[in-house]
Design a protein around this nucleic acid. Structure first.
Lengths: 233, 233
DNA sequence: GGAGGGTATTATGCATACAAAATGTCTTAC
DNA sequence: GTAAGACATTTTGTATGCATAATACCCTCC
């Protein structure tokens, strides 16, 4: 309610009808963040009463949010026993990265056709920003930049359905990535890959870009799986 | 409540711990079917009171189901104005088929590696069943068989995450396909494509199968788009 | 006669109350 | 001492109530 005023200030920009925020939606986003950032760890039970107190709301929005996130796959419903944060297994991580690889490859191909020069320039800018973080050894900002690059790439594929699907899946694996501790060697290698990716995109070589992205994702998968305590080919 | 007894009868089959059906889940499935089969047409408003009467329940499960389906993308939430069945546009149909193409291509590649001979045999059986329906001009059973083949193919890729993603997207496009009226020529062509698909799968030629599936999906898209009253390349 | 505004009605959003299932605890019997 | 059962507590699932936003309707004014 207190934030209402500032919202209005932002609304008067150019949006004709300001969207009224739904409490359930806020709870969805807050819960999602808690889950993705691992504050609600995989496997933990979601106690409605506790969440209500934490989020300062009643059970109805919380329950609706849980149903929403269940559809998204971030939580699992146990009939008459509530819900838990979806556990992370090596198997599901592998599945997701395979899928993400295919999605990014598709996005890459589409981006080579549909991206505007301005969009590619934006990715290049993010890339150099990322290089800076890499040079300074700033891991967390590096990850943020990295994420933004991938999201921007998806975005400029010009396929909103693809983007939505990607985002949902990406949220899942980001949970796992919070555990991953990158070695310097792997980190350097990832940056090299990103350089090649940027080059292929700049030249709009769709097939090459697709292959690079698939391989890049595969390497990311290795890192995450090793962090999960299990490695395989 | 009256249905409770019959449910129990079914439970005693062989399942060790019969899962207690949740009312909200039943509503999800019932609503989803109504939407996919077009009984709740794209764009129509979901009136909670009406749905409650129709599904013989209170607003709570209905609202939770709507949130669930919103996450799935089948309904759109309009804050303070309820929800509508997500409208179908040529643009989103195109997006979804492009994505489905990539997913099926991936599934095809994986299936060529992971599918058991028994699974492929099952697909072959479904294929011949489909040929029979085609020969008799039975459109609706043909579609069912066709769906089963594609689902089975996805299934034997051995990637549950991929399967889930596919199912959700497939539900969306099936809404549109209910409008599509297949010409005999296109129908014949689709059957030919399926023959090639089966052959490639039998020979476990992943790359070939992937390409075939992509092209098959692209053709399906044409049919649906034309039925939507708009054609484009 | 049409447009604008104000009121009445309806529908949604959130909170809460009630019922049933699950869980935990304590007692008792062996 | 342990296991089984009954009871108490907690938690979930569903229904309902209340407040507010949106809609529809009607009346007035131009």
């Amino acid at each position: 309610m207190d934030q209402h005023t500032e919202n209005h200030a932002a609304d008067s920009d150019d949006a004709p009808a300001a969207e009224p925020r739904l409490l359930a939606e806020e709870v969805v986003e807050r819960l999602r963040d808690l889950i993705i950032q691992g504050e609600l760890a995989p496997g933990v039970k979601l106690n409605e009463r506790v969440l209500c107190e934490r989020l300062r709301t009643s059970r109805t929005p919380v329950r609706e949010a849980i149903k929403f996130l269940a559809s998204e796959g971030l939580v699992e419903l146990l009939p008459n026993r509530g819900a838990i944060v979806t556990p992370i297994t090596a198997a599901t991580v592998r599945e997701m990265f395979v899928l993400l690889g295919a999605l990014e490859a598709l996005a890459g191909e589409l981006a080579c056709v549909n991206a505007s020069d301005a969009e590619i320039a934006e990715i290049r800018a993010l890339h150099y920003q990322m290089l800076a973080h890499h040079a300074r050894g700033e891991l967390s900002p590096y990850f943020r930049c990295n994420q933004q690059i991938h999201l921007q790439l998806i975005e400029c594929a010009g396929n909103a359905t693809l983007a939505n699907t990607y985002r949902a899946l990406n949220g899942h694996v980001r949970r796992a990535r919070y555990m991953a501790n990158l070695s310097q060697e792997r980190w350097d290698h990832a940056v090299e890959e990103h350089q090649k990716i940027l080059d292929a995109l700049s030249r709009r070589e769709g097939a090459v870009l697709a292959a690079l992205l698939r391989s890049h994702l595969s390497n990311k998968m290795q890192v995450v799986l090793e962090a999960l305590g299990e490695q395989m080919a």
